[in-house]
Amino acid sequence: MTQHDGDRLASWLDGLGLADQLAEAGLPTFTRDADGHAVWSEPDRLEELDALLHSVGDDPEHAVPVGLVVLARQARLRTELTATPWHTYETLAEVRGTSVDATRFAVHKAASEHRLLVVPLEERSVVPAFQLGADGELRPELAPVLAPLLASRMDPWRAWVWLTQPAALTLGEAPERLAATDPELARTAAERLAERL
């Protein structure tokens, strides 16, 4: 592939907002030199990469690499979720008015019993705040929604996304919100999702 082809491929991926997902997908990555040209990590794999990325869809020339789109969406949602309130053991202990050790024990016990969503974030565990009341305890209406998801060993990030984003199984409403108004539908949706995993 020529420099022009490498630049074209890089610009296409930039335009789709997918350049940052290449490494996670195990594909060659690129940076830009001082002149703005793409410098690929594995230039000998560019033809293979180009063919792979354009292999999906009816029109291979304009096909969108679905796997990278999914990775990009997941990265965007993770960024959005980490911008919402969540607790460390220390901040949750403060809300609950207990010691950090007691809070850590309670969180681990609740998580092991599928009663609390705990998510790994940058080498620590965090507790998304949407599932808690003002006292730092689990919102009672969420227990029947969380249980099937956590028992199915659903990825914690995927669970956090599903619970807080509009979902088809909950008629376009975020399941954690629906749990307050229609707990039966929220529970049923969670059970159906868990069965698919």
Rank of each mutant, 00 (worst) to 15 (best):
P140T: 14
V56M: 06
L193Y: 06
E191G: 05
P175Q: 08
L16K: 13
A10G: 03
P43V: 09
R196E: 14
V127G: 08
D58E: 13
P85V: 01
E48G: 04
V64K: 10
L146I: 09
P140A: 13
R139N: 07
A83R: 13
R104M: 09
P144Y: 10
L121G: 00
R115S: 09
A129Y: 01
A75D: 09
L16Q: 15
G15Y: 04
L171W: 06
V39Y: 02
T88Y: 00
V127W: 00
A102W: 02
V126S: 00
D155V: 05
R78H: 13
T79F: 05
V70R: 15
R73Q: 14
R187M: 15
E80W: 14
L9I: 07
A110K: 01
R192I: 15
A102R: 07
H62P: 02
P65V: 08
R139E: 13
L146W: 02
H108F: 03
E47N: 08
A167P: 06
R153A: 07
E94K: 04
R32Q: 01
P120C: 03
S99K: 03
P183I: 08
V100K: 02
H4S: 15
E48H: 04
K109P: 08
E61P: 02
T91N: 05
R8K: 13
E48P: 01
H108D: 13
E173D: 11
L150Q: 07
Q131I: 09
F105E: 15
A83I: 04
T79M: 12
G57H: 04
T31R: 10
R177M: 10
L193R: 09
